[in-house]
């Protein structure tokens, strides 16, 4: 567990996560530098979403350690003991990361604007007017200013996902996690979400993106990880991993996706 979290935004060291008998993550180590766009690809059930959810503490890891923004997550070190953090402390740690879900998970009972200001107002205790002004800028950025007062159900999947990105950005996170953000979308709506993500990457945001969009990965990623059966099989720049993979499993997966 001698990861050096000093200059990494995320450092995972020997992380294992079990669901019953299944090892969703098996001794995974990964460090990610600030400003990187890290894409994680792999077949379903390979553990890539689980890794993302562990980074945001939506799942608790069984072994190993994860540092986010230099902080050990889930525990406090006291002498030679690890003390579990409280609910409120975990909530505070999550403030450094934003998360975008496969199924958007917008708050259904709130309008688009209310969705975006909910975190800043309720969690960060920012003045409402200030939060609204900020939210309007974000809405313009994702190109949905005119949907300000719509309810999520009135929006297309692509629009909902762009709002979900705006909601996460409103918390000013240092790191954005994307859990298969385009997998639940109709094919013609994928482009608009990827465009927002591309724009976000260009602005220098650190992003970890679990995706099946190999084209996006090749174009935007600084670094690509291929996972299979709870392990990292191959890692490298997109032109290496996606174009000239070294491992047979990676080659098979890419061939299957591109077919």
């Amino acid at each position: 567990m001698n990861a050096s979290p000093a200059n990494a935004i995320v450092a995972a060291a020997n992380v294992t996560k079990r669901f019953g008998d299944l090892r969703a993550l098996n001794n995974v180590s990964l460090t990610i530098a600030p400003g990187t766009v890290q894409c994680i690809i792999g077949p379903s059930g390979s553990g890539k979403s689980t890794l993302l959810r562990c980074i945001n503490q939506l799942e608790k890891i069984d072994q190993g350690a994860i540092w986010v923004d230099g902080q050990l997550i889930g525990y406090r070190i006291k002498g030679d003991e690890l003390h579990e953090l409280s609910d409120a402390e975990i909530a505070r740690q999550r403030l450094s990361t934003g998360m975008v879900f496969q199924r958007f998970n917008l708050f259904n009972h709130m309008t688009v604007l209310e969705n975006i200001i909910e975190g800043p107002v309720t969690v960060l205790r920012r003045p409402r007017q200030e939060a609204i002004a900020e939210a309007e800028k974000l809405l313009a950025r994702v190109g949905l200013s005119e949907k300000r007062n719509a309810y999520p159900i009135e929006l297309s999947g692509g629009q909902q996902q762009r709002i979900a990105i705006a909601r996460a950005l409103a918390m000013k996170p240092k790191l954005m996690l994307f859990d298969e953000p385009t997998s639940a979308l109709d094919p013609e709506l994928v482009g608009e979400v990827l465009a927002v993500m591309r724009d976000l990457a260009a602005s220098g945001m650190t992003m970890i993106v679990v995706t099946h969009e190999l084209g996006f990965a090749r174009e935007v990623a600084t670094d690509v990880v291929f996972m299979d059966k709870g392990e990292i099989v191959e890692r490298g720049p997109p032109n290496a991993v996606l174009v000239a993979p070294q491992q047979a499993r990676t080659r098979d997966f890419i061939a299957a996706v591109l077919k």
Binding site: N56, M99, L106, E118, V123
Partner: peptide, 26 residues
């Protein structure tokens, strides 16, 4: 839907705030 709770957690809400602001109203 459990996704509502996860989204609330992801923007830094505690368990009780999530219940009060997100889950109970729905």
């Amino acid at each position: 839907d459990v996704g509502q709770t996860e989204a609330a957690k992801s923007i830094g809400m505690t368990r009780l705030t999530t219940l009060r602001r997100i889950v109970l109203p729905q």
